[in-house]
Design a protein around this nucleic acid. Structure first.
Lengths: 244, 244
DNA sequence: GATGGTATGTTGGTATACCATATGACCACA
DNA sequence: TGTGGTCATATGGTATACCAACATACCATC
């Protein structure tokens, strides 16, 4: 039905609605810690901040509620969802299962194109890690989240996206992204911490090596080690916060 | 802070908003197949059907969109999400990981109270299976979904809820419920099918027995067998539909 | 200082209005 | 019969208004 010679004329991405833009902005503000865990989200205040009507704000809040990033308090309205270690632990456990499965499948299936894409993603991650280490010391806010939307975060996301996509685990990837959204502040703090025994990029390199070697078992082990350390650091951070 | 002698006076569940009621009704209509896969959801039509304003309907649609039960078509508006085998297969794979993990953990942890609860849930399931077999032949609609909200569906859900709750896998349970929502029509058809090699309740009994015996490995195996059969039947059903 | 009554402001819930865009029906013409 | 033009309708996007419930402030009384 489509005419192959005219595919390039097709408008693939229609203009975004206000609702979509507001959703992205609010999600970004939550993930970066700008809207803090437990903070009330007052509709009229958000309207002023975002310059839109309550209809748009309410629909965005509804979506974020379904995503688990916002909770509705009885008789109080919406607030940024809180996270304790018991919940975070479950999220890390689920990620362990889904990420190990994806890495194994990716290692079993990976062809040269996938390997090249993963190497590029790893290179970007290593570059971002070096770059963020330089800038994160300068001018970091007390939320510790100034790099949450930064290069390292996005590079890490891209790295795993290559793995999940190559494995064909699209739905699992959606789930992992949602879960990561809920622990994004923890992840930002984890990325920022400097007491890791082995740095993140080194662990990612191990994952990459296992996939490049088409070794599913080694890929699963590398993911396990990476996530176990990340969870351990996250636990310490949450417990130091005293359940905040 | 709370006075123990007056806990019974506390109002635990505030009255539901219209939005919550509409959300439940729409979700139920989608899960039961009343709103069919691929069917457009026209806002004004839904307002007439549900007797509420567009604000309420739109907020409910937004939530269902985030849940994956509704898709927004460009220049067309919302429709009930479609499901093909490639996606369903991924969902069964994820369920395999999460349900095996939960059953293992439950088997490792289960005390007498958990075992009793699981036995009761199994008994309800067996009763529902006998009852639905009797009534599903009588007056079943062409959607094959008249028992989707029925006893067997709910009993199956309750059975797994006991397992996930006892295991402490609350977030995994949320995810499984969401995923099951997306394949609810498939599950309804799977439950209704009579060509299973071993019936569902028999497989559930095996899961229950493994948990009662505090045998994590056997619990994982029983879950694997159960889901493998369910996925196989679902695949056949979808392929017979020709990708509908 | 504690407590109850009242007034006021805030805020979420819900309904409605308006607009722009897309679609479909219809018709004229070649 | 195919095509282009026109018009009407349908529908989602967005804004605004109104209301009720709740929280808070204030005051009088004990």
């Amino acid at each position: 039905m489509t005419q192959p010679d005219y595919d390039d004329l097709k408008i693939e991405n229609p203009p975004q609605t206000l609702r979509e833009i507001v959703l992205e902005r609010m999600r970004g503000a939550i993930l970066s810690g700008r809207f803090k865990s437990g903070e009330r989200l007052v509709e009229r205040t958000l309207c002023d901040q975002l310059g839109v009507s309550r209809s748009v704000v309410r629909e965005a809040i509804r979506y974020l509620e379904a995503e688990g990033l916002v909770e509705i308090m009885v008789n109080k309205g919406p607030m940024v969802a809180r996270m304790d270690w018991a919940q975070a632990a479950q999220i890390y456990d689920i990620r362990m299962l889904l990420e190990q499965s994806a890495a194994s499948a990716c290692a079993a299936l990976a062809d040269d194109a996938v390997k090249a894409a993963l190497r590029r993603a790893l290179a970007d991650l290593e570059a971002a890690s070096a770059g963020d280490a330089g800038t994160s010391d300068a001018g970091t806010s007390d939320t510790g989240a100034s790099n949450a939307g930064g290069g390292l975060f996005q590079a890490t996301t891209r790295f795993y996206e290559v793995i999940f996509t190559a494995a064909g685990h699209h739905i699992a990837w959606e789930i992992v992204q949602r879960l990561n959204g809920r622990i994004s502040r923890l992840r930002a703090l984890t990325l920022a911490t400097s007491d890791r025994h082995v740095s993140g990029p080194v662990r990612m390199a191990r994952i990459c090596a296992a996939i490049v070697a088409n070794d599913p078992a080694a890929a699963a082990v590398a993911v396990r080690d990476h996530l176990a350390e990340a969870a351990q650091i996250a636990r310490r951070l949450l417990e130091n916060e005293g359940g905040k």
